[in-house]
Amino acid sequence: MVAHPRTSMGTHGLRPLGLPREIVVVVNQLGLPSAILRGSTVLGIAQVEELWRVSEAWWRIDALARTYVRLLLDSGRLLTLFHDDQCVPDDGWYEQRY
């Protein structure tokens, strides 16, 4: 009998681009970022420019719920972060480049 021709299974090399990077954030009483820690450097936040929420596939176990914030840093640079809403406010912050 000839061996079954099925090959090993896998996702065959699709690697997502633009994956978020974990970041350490100090939050205020409202749960919004008040400072960002990058190594030993503290990045001050001048203003929260925009805030929006993304919720997808809420009916699935791996549902996705994120709160995005676009921040204006003290240095004048814009930075987009999101908080994974399944984590506690202090934890689960990521930097994401659009």
Binding site: G13, L14, R15, P16, G18, P20, V54, E56
Partner: peptide, 24 residues
């Protein structure tokens, strides 16, 4: 070598929009 391909360009989730596929 990989090539960049559009996966879900309309997605609100940035990491789902583009992906690298092995150039094979």
């Amino acid at each position: 070598v990989a090539r960049m391909v559009e996966v879900e360009p309309w997605s609100r989730i940035p990491e789902r929009r583009w992906a690298l596929m092995d150039y094979d």
